[in-house]
Amino acid sequence: MKNILRITILGIMRDRVFHGITVAALVFGLVPVISQLSMRQVTELALTLSLSLTSFLLLLLSVFLGGVSLWKDIDRRYAYSILGLPLRRSDYVLGKYLGIVSFILLTATVLGIVGALFSYSAIGVYPPNRPVLWENYVYAIFFDVLKYALLVSFAFLFSTISTSFFLPMFGAVCIFFVGSSSQEAYNYVNSPEAAALHPAAKSAITALYYVLPNFGAFDFKTNAIYSIPMDYQGLMLTFVYFCCYVSIVLGLAVILFNRRQL
């Protein structure tokens, strides 16, 4: 597993993915410039832009790497040589998964630091309404990483049952958007405004809410942007939720991949 992890990261590096990220990260240079436009919340805007850009780049990365990684190995028959080695398929899948997640974590760290530096440059000139809680900033990025780790596990799950990369890629994008708004939909269903909704539709949405991943739960950007204190119990619960969910999805992916005919 360790060996697969290592060569997965090596592969991502050799494919110049990090160069691409670096080029994209040049956009961070615009953060201080754009935040100047704000009337009342320069620092908040700088943090918003940094966190959003980081999250967006991580999304691209996880959809792309998660969707393509397994598929490419199978499509180009690299898997034949690799699985001819004394490796369990589960080790192969998990090694690849951990390789991608490690890379996402690395990228998030680098982007997080760059974003923090640019945001910090804004604070000196235009102090925020409330002092920035950098701890929250770290939590926001860390939970973003968890969110995308969960997303990558879905991309892997789709890869194990698909022979093309369309399902993993588009499946991941879809599940990301659905999972990001499932909380909204659930809240709506349980609000008085939804009284007119058909009961069947209500229960369908409620059922989906429990089954689909709740990506919205991993979004702690507001806490970082507006310095709202963290609810540590909530963080802990979210973390446990992540662990359970990702274990199930990866478990399914491994089971399906074990049965897969190459």
């Binding site: 592969g11 050799r14 028959r77 034949y80 001819g84």
Partner: peptide, 21 residues
Amino acid sequence: KAETRRHVGFLPENPALYDYM
């Protein structure tokens, strides 16, 4: 069983090896 492949050396037909290495 994966461990049987410890004793085996395998060359696939028209092998494809990670080409970035």
